[in-house]
Write a protein that binds this DNA or RNA. Structure first.
Lengths: 136, 136
DNA sequence: AAGCGAAAGCTATGGGCAATAGCAATACCG
DNA sequence: CGGTATTGCTATTGCCCATAGCTTTCGCTT
């Protein structure tokens, strides 16, 4: 079948992202984590006390969409909220959160390594900078 | 804010795909087309008479999910179905479909060109092969 | 020729993720 | 002090994809 799409970087980007996201999701399901969960846990670990709004800005997740994510993580006992003032609350990992993140990070690291290894060596070093140029 | 995610190719892939998809979608809305619509129209044009199943296999869209897409395109008068035998039907562009695709292709070409131009020159040639290695 | 497995097209449903609109409470700043 | 911005939230919607299951038809094998 003739496929005029395969030569389009934008289409390849879409397909690659979909394929890899599905793969990662299937590995994270064993930990009862989603991709957004892990990225949030990693970001909270690196920035303890940050607010939901600030984290959302960093991840480009809107405030409204942070709510269910944080609720899920809090219900799972992975993060805790501490009031900063009357309207803001700082987030931090609980002990369980740190433990869960350790597991998640292992999965992520394996995943990222396999991703890179899939790319022919002569292109490897270019992938990250090229991708970053597309959105940063 | 400390961000441990930006050095992960998988995360960059996700962000880049999201950002570019949103951008393309916003340009296509003026044509009342979605990204899946345009890819389907392009594929049908290149393979007139192909069946829904075959197109779906090429695009990695399951049969069940092809239904609403094709229905939308047919309702818009962009594609037509012709029975091949009792259980299969060949798809082809209508005249309106060809006209709409011409508009869509213009948008896509602008989009793809801008995408590539966003990437520093020394990385450009590597983007497509690196992405293709991730899913093909 | 008959029968059976595979394929085609479809319905129905749900999950994940993101966008929008709007709201109440609070903080900040001139 | 008063207006404005910010925070966290509810509610809703849309897009995309996945699964399960159904009916009809095709095509191969016996």
């Amino acid at each position: 079948m003739q496929d005029p799409l395969v030569s389009l970087p934008g289409y390849a980007l879409r397909r690659a992202a979909n394929a890899t996201a599905a793969e990662l999701a299937s590995r994270l399901v064993a930990l009862a984590l989603r991709q957004s969960d892990v990225s949030l846990l990693m970001l909270v670990e690196a920035n303890p006390g940050a607010t939901s709004s600030a984290l959302g800005r960093q991840l480009d997740i809107q405030r409204a969409n942070m709510v269910p994510i944080l609720k899920r993580l809090e219900d799972a006992g992975l993060i805790a909220r501490a009031p900063i003032d009357g309207k803001s609350q700082g987030l931090a990992l609980t002990d369980a959160g740190r433990a869960k993140l350790a597991e998640g990070r292992t999965v992520i690291e394996h995943f990222e390594r396999e991703l890179i290894e899939r790319v022919p060596q002569e292109h490897r070093a270019h992938l990250l900078p090229a991708l970053n140029a597309l959105w940063r």
